[in-house]
Design a protein around this nucleic acid. Structure first.
Lengths: 228, 228
DNA sequence: CGGGTGATTGAGCCCGCTCAACTCTCGTGG
DNA sequence: CCACGAGAGTTGAGCGGGCTCAATCACCCG
């Protein structure tokens, strides 16, 4: 595992901090590994089952967490975008593997710091619970998608989720490959590709390059009401 | 919603308490609705989106939580057995519906009591986080099942999970219907039934009545090593 | 302009679904 | 005690959505 540590604070770091109102302990809590580590595309950040001694916050880039079966079948549990926390475990070991989807800068915190902060502050302890519950809610919704939705519904739901997490205006920039999308949605990459083509031919969206999508239909723009 | 409140402590309650070593706040925290409410088979305990003002602990019976799509497609997120807590939300509303699978006795706690306990005790706050994370780990494993496993693998995993949660000896008693199993595994009830028949014909198990199963193959007895 | 990775598209198949008939179980009442 | 009915489970036949395998295309670097 290669970890490059930045020794000087890059200009982006301040910008990222601005972008999110910090009610979090992670705003105060100093990250011991400097301002952030950089992980290259597809580089592993931690592996499932490893000792969960660090907690991470995405500063730039995107991270995926996933589980594997013996024969290589993969299920991506979640994508993490700037501002998101991952690797936060009350137990001893990580329950999934984390990798950088694209080159990513992450803040690294020591597990014991988090625990210490939670021991001295009820607000922090409450926030840990709250974050775990948010992840659980996402997982419950995703189980409904994986267990009961059609390929078309899954891809539509994915586009809505990505557009909500991206900036505004109906333009979605997908940082991940078709294979990543497929492994997130429980489909094959061919089915994802076909479904996107189908949505384009029906006028629901416009692909401009495989990873840039302009949403056209009202249905795919569920998040447009938020924050004009 | 019909809630019958027991006014006298039934003999089973003490037995249930013995069955689980209580490190939990829920052992100390008095449940304000007496010793337990009884819910009839298929009776709703709370609905998705309702105000999450109560937390529940199963004393007897089994509970399911699930989400629905508009057209009735259902995904069961989890089954809760005696000793399990459900309905524990940091947010305002329940994220899924809860129903009794069979007639169930549950202890009922007020949300504000839990929050008060968490505010005065780090151990309690830590336990809330830990329970949420356990549920999240279960959900992550279930996403892998729903997104990537075959029907046979799903049914096998279900039997292993149920045998782990039941008592010992390779005998599994299924309290839920084939439809419940199917909605938990992301299959149809016919596929569940066919797969069980297939496992029986291959000698992996023996059905004695639809809801009583004797596990035969080593593969389906993953939990046998635990607690002789 | 050429090489390589990622994405798209096509053809055919198969696993799990749909629709339907039958069986089993169990409770209820004669 | 048996007859009956209703709900749950099983089994069968056929279909189809998404998968597999494969070829082609698009884009990005050099």
């Amino acid at each position: 595992m290669i970890v490059q540590t930045q020794t000087t604070r890059p200009p982006q770091a301040a910008k990222v901090a601005d972008a999110k109102v910090e009610i979090s302990i992670f705003a105060d809590c100093p990250d011991v590994i400097g301002v952030g580590s950089i992980y290259q595309q597809n580089e592993e950040i931690y592996g499932e089952g490893e000792l969960a001694d660090q907690v991470y916050k995405v500063l730039r880039g995107v991270v995926r967490t996933y589980k594997l079966l013996d024969d290589g079948r993969r299920q991506i549990a979640a994508f993490y975008f700037p501002g998101d926390i991952f690797g936060l475990e009350p137990g001893e070991n990580y329950s999934a593997t984390a990798e950088a989807v694209v080159i990513a800068q992450v803040a690294v915190f020591q597990r014991r710091q988090i625990h210490a902060a939670a021991s001295s502050s009820i607000e922090v302890a409450r926030e840990l619970w709250s974050r775990a519950a948010q992840n659980l809610h996402h997982a419950e919704s995703h189980m409904l998608l994986l267990g009961r939705k059609t390929a078309l519904e899954r891809v539509e739901a994915f586009l809505v989720e990505m557009s909500q997490r991206s900036q505004r205006s109906g333009h979605v920039n997908l940082p991940m490959s078709r294979r990543d999308i497929a492994d997130y949605l429980g489909l094959t990459l061919e089915t994802v590709s076909r479904t996107l083509s189908q949505l384009q031919s029906e006028g629901g969206l416009q692909l401009s390059g495989a990873r840039r999508i302009e949403l056209r239909s009202r249905k795919l723009m569920g998040a447009m009401a938020t924050a004009a």
